[in-house]
Design a binder for these strands. Sequence first.
DNA 1: CATGAATGAGACTTCATTCAT
DNA 2: AATGAATGAAGTCTCATTCAT
Lengths: 210, 210, 210, 210
Amino acid sequence: MRIADRAKRKELTQIRQTQILDAASEIFSKKGFAHTQVDGIANLAGLGKGTIYRYFKDKKKLFSAVVDRGLEDLKNTILIEVDKIEDPLKKIETVMRTYLSFFERNSDLTGVLIHEQSSFQKRIAERYFEHYYGNVDKMKQIFKEAIGKGIIKDINIDNAISVLAGLLNGLIYMWQIENRSYKLSDKLSIVSKIFFTGIIRNEKRRKEYE
Amino acid sequence: MRIADRAKRKELTQIRQTQILDAASEIFSKKGFAHTQVDGIANLAGLGKGTIYRYFKDKKKLFSAVVDRGLEDLKNTILIEVDKIEDPLKKIETVMRTYLSFFERNSDLTGVLIHEQSSFQKRIAERYFEHYYGNVDKMKQIFKEAIGKGIIKDINIDNAISVLAGLLNGLIYMWQIENRSYKLSDKLSIVSKIFFTGIIRNEKRRKEYE
Amino acid sequence: MRIADRAKRKELTQIRQTQILDAASEIFSKKGFAHTQVDGIANLAGLGKGTIYRYFKDKKKLFSAVVDRGLEDLKNTILIEVDKIEDPLKKIETVMRTYLSFFERNSDLTGVLIHEQSSFQKRIAERYFEHYYGNVDKMKQIFKEAIGKGIIKDINIDNAISVLAGLLNGLIYMWQIENRSYKLSDKLSIVSKIFFTGIIRNEKRRKEYE
Amino acid sequence: MRIADRAKRKELTQIRQTQILDAASEIFSKKGFAHTQVDGIANLAGLGKGTIYRYFKDKKKLFSAVVDRGLEDLKNTILIEVDKIEDPLKKIETVMRTYLSFFERNSDLTGVLIHEQSSFQKRIAERYFEHYYGNVDKMKQIFKEAIGKGIIKDINIDNAISVLAGLLNGLIYMWQIENRSYKLSDKLSIVSKIFFTGIIRNEKRRKEYE
DNA sequence: CATGAATGAGACTTCATTCAT
DNA sequence: AATGAATGAAGTCTCATTCAT
């Protein structure tokens, strides 16, 4: 019986954690760190304020946990989707699609990552890059393969990846600023079109930039 | 003499305003709105706390003034630079260069615009788009001209501009997250290369996306 | 057990309220609204500053609560005492005695009601007259009965009551100004003597005023 | 020329003083001491803030000067009027009338004297009693004369005067609380009627109190 | 002498965190 | 283990007073 009890206990703890993180994610995203009150998170989670502190040392740790969970999810989601695909270009396209739809589904996280540079710059950046570079190796391989096969141009891979990341993050940022008033994934086709083929049609002019 | 006095007074007032806005911009950018203390701004400006409140009704108004001044500057800077150029592609490239180097020079503003979505979402968005769309008309003309002359592809102009904006903002965002550890304007060549000509070399594969 | 707990909780809340109101009443009376610090009230009540704000939204609301409680007490005290008496003149005398001894016992309230016309004019006046006219109906009946029975002169009742109120309040005001250096209730006999029978002895001269 | 200049200077100083006291009186009365800003007084007086401080050491001293000037006026006004009359009862009636109409004319002072017990209790009380007892001697003589001539009852004179003062102050207090919504001097007839002859008609009952 | 810009002490209020129940 | 009442440090803003012009 003891063991079953202990299992139950652990499960309950797990559920509580999730409850709290969900509530925290929602409110942090809407109001930002400073304007979020722990009271509000407790209420939304349907728990007492003291309980929050039993699960997270303080407000900052709770915020970090929200960020960590989000980026961990993001990384896993991308890896799973990418591994299903063979063709390098399609892989890159899948990364783009998965990235955008992840933030569309978890729009809470958008706010959390965009605000709060100040106090959490280091934390977010660390975590973000842990995720980012966790994926970057994979991305590098994909780009390398595509260059090797002569599919894409022989450009500096790091820079290309950094531009791609900037492009996606920028779209999410604009979407957030415009109050998420449109479907983020609708931008996918234009983004991949421009990223892959550019906007110049005139061959002669294109040469100037290649 | 009176008139000279009054002129002097006005000038001093102008100087104070600038002093305060400079200090505020710096600290708001570093610490974000919530963690910035008015006292700190006063000290950095070499003024008393009360003086800040003599010039700006409260902390929020001061913050907004920082944003307003920044975006106004940005708009003017871009318009001036673009008007010097004739060729449409070069114009677009100039917008990109000017935008990036503006934030490089006024890196204070970067933080201010990136944080504080929550409390100032409306204010920033309004101002940002006032600036943004103030420039967008000009951008549309440039794109239209380029399409008309057959220089660039016949794509949806609004979407192209929004992708360009996202691309630039995303770069700035990444730069900020990476602690401005490199020269932002160094990214210009790769960005314009990709934006203008894309990354696919293989003609056949390129067709899939065009 | 739960119910007992909840009852205890409620009781504690009641006790805190009273603690705070008592402390507030004392300090507001001594120092007036503006010079009273919430800190001071908290200390006197043996509570933290934050606790005061848990019970009362802000300093103004706390002040109003002090006034409200005081006037409610006063009204009840008077009604209870007056109902014990039959004879109209004795009733009026009882109102006078009860009014004076109420302020003698609750001298805190004296200061509170006398100061703070400015900021709380409306609030105090409203509450005061709520109390005042709550009692005035009763007073009118008493005067009417006394006139009907030929005990007192056929004067304008409203005016008589307003003079009586002024007389009592004026005595309290003088007593307050003179630092409560004598027993307020000692004035009762002379006041009732003058109010009831006047000061003129000479019959002929008395006629001039009747 | 020097002497004329100096005279002019002195006169200007006098005018400034009056300007400031008038403005101060008005605002202190409306808003009370704490809520009155020196800025407001300066503006109403049409002077710079610094000038106020040239004439009065600080805000408290200015307030006291307002009170002092008011009570000095009151005392003089009463003395002048009373000296015109012969008959003792008429003299008392004249004090009552003059007192009430003084506050009716200088309603600014009403507020000033009623609020601000707290910080100025001592100051006001001192000044008030300086005025009060400055007049009380005169009043005592009047009462003594009236008693000597058998016109009024042989009551304790101090008490009678204190009741009279309370009665008048109470009327002014009620008038202030009711927002000066009626003519204060209209209360004179009923007040003097009650004060002089009382309210009991029934001879037998009257005996109970005499 | 008059002015009003500058100052900073001081007061209210909020809210993260603790801890007794 | 869960709760939420209590706390007080910390932050914003006001305004009497000063002083350079």
